[in-house]
Each structure stands twice: as C-alpha cells, then as structure tokens.
Amino acid sequence: MALLEVKGLGLEFSSPGGTVQAVNKISYDVEPGEIVAVVGESGSGKTAAALSILGLVPQPPGKIVAGEISFDGQNLLDLSEDEMRRIRGRRIAMVFQEPMTSLNPLLTIGRQLTEAMRLHLGLGKAAANDRAVELMNMVGISDPQRRLGQYPHHFSGGMRQRVMIAMVLSCEPELIIADEPTTALDVTIQAQILSLMQDLTEKLGVAMVIITHNLGVVARYADRVNVMYAGRIVEHGTAVELYRNPAHPYTIGLLNSVPRLDRPRGSPLEPIPGNPPDLTALGRGCAFMPRCRFATPACGEATPDLQDVGGSHVAACWELEKIRSGKAA
C-alpha cells in the first residue's frame, strides 16, 4: 500500500482578484522509502499542494474543495487540528525553501532542534540533547555540543539547512516533504545538501516528496516525477522515462530550457515562450495551449486527461500522437 496517496486534490484561494485555483484535481502517490519529485514553475501550485498535506494552508483564504489525502490509510483531511498536530513533525516533516528565515532568531539551535523530540517522543532534556548531538553529527556539523548552544545567526545558509534536515529527521518521520530545499543556497552547497538528504532518507528508509523547479535535481535524486502546470499534473513517470522520452510539450520545453551535458556544446537553450497563465481565469481548454508549439484549435475546447504513454508513464495532452511521431521524424 502506498504511504501517501493524494487523490483528486483541489485547492482554491480566494483573493480580491477572484478565486485562484491553485491546485486542480491532482493525484499522486508515494511508496515507503521512495523519492518522488513534483516539478513546476513558480505559481504552478506545487508548494500549496505540499502544504495541504500537512494541513498548513491558511484557511481562509485557502480552501480544500475536493479530494482526499490518504496517509498510511488515513484521510488527513478528516483529522482534527489536534490529531493533525500529532502527525506534523512526528510522522510527516517538512524542509522549507528559505534556510535563512526558517529558524527562530531568538532561540538556540539546540532548543529548536530538541523541542519536537521532547514533545513528540517525550524525551527528557538530557536524552534530547544527546540525540541532537547525534543528529548534528549525522548532517555533518562539527563540534555539535558547542553549536547547539549557538543561535541561527552564527550559521551560514548551508549550515542552517543542515540544521533543518537534522530537525526534520529528529522524530524519525515516515515521510519528508522538501519544498525547494536548495533553491536559496549556493550552487556548490546545493549538491551537498541534496546528497545528504538522499543518503539519510535511504539509510533511514524515509520517503520523500521533493518539490523543485530544477530538473537537474529530479534527474539525479528522484525515483518518480510529477510535472505540474497551472495547478494540474500534466505528466507523470519514472525519472528515466521522463528524461529519455518526455511526452508533454511542457516537459519537453522544460528539458530544452536547461543545459545538459548530453547535448553538443554551444547548442542554444530554448526557453518556453510566454508566461504561466492567470489562475483566476483559466479557460476550459488546456492551460498550456497559449505557450505550446504543438497546439491546435481543438486544444482550447477541453482539458485533456492523463493518458498512458507506456509503462507507468502518463501525460495530459491532446496531441501526444503527433508529438511522438514528430520526435521520431
């Protein structure tokens, strides 16, 4: 049984400009110990979808209008705030995007690292401190005992993200949600942090949902990938399937817009033209149509559903046949 199953999740935000359909009937699952990526541009609804798993979407203005989030057989949307609180940090933990602002500036690292353990695991002060030292070692922070007494401003961005990872691992959760965990970091640090997360999740058998706009991250670390566009999942498959054989024009566009070592040097990058659509005014057709070079007038009539492309690979596009033959030609 899948550890996490998101089924037909719909999430709206009411704003002065109208209702924003941030997440539109998305479904995906995560097996125990697996790394699943959710890829998309800013504003594609990937963060909102992740926050709704933990029940952290502010309501109002947010509102979950459809679907179910089943975790270990239990629908998280049915739980009371208190039951949900016991899952947060204990069974599902989250790493956020901004390590520089994710730690409370007035509390010591030790305090912030141990408070969840003391609450969820009922550890005493000394036991929690011992475990904190162990965790700091695990995420590669030297001199942990001294560092625990320091404050966030004594730590660099990369170090803070290591602290965040230690914090997230502290209660041995079954699932970690990582929302752009390396976007705010230097490129050289990014790889370190991601490798660390991969090693630790593998060693501890923790499943991870990694939210990113960086396809390089996906290629290297994810088992399976969901590509999101305008609040919908437009393509899903294993990382290999998606890389070797992208089916949706948006995925193809994304892959063409990042530099790759397996292409000739000097070959130009092709950005996707246009901008993401206004989520308050989505038409009935495919949301990607205005930016799509394969679009036909029929694409504006209705939104395509996900269709099999082979294996576990699915994509939501009306012109899959044409694209496939076009690539072959």
Binding site: L54, L56, R85, R86, I87, R88, G89, R90, A93, M94, F96, E98, T101, S102, L103, N104, P105, L107, E115, A116, L119, H120, M164, M167
Partner: peptide, 20 residues
C-alpha cells in the same frame, strides 16, 4: 517563515505563540 516551520513541527499552539 520560522513560525510556519514551528507549526510544521507539530508544536502546540500556545507554545508556538508564547515561545516562538
């Protein structure tokens, strides 16, 4: 952000308000 993080750790509401 750090309040959001504290919330994601499952801290009790009163603790979150008064300590964080």
């Amino acid at each position: 952000d750090y309040v959001q993080v504290a919330r994601s750790k499952g801290l009790k509401h009163s603790y979150l308000i008064f300590m964080h």
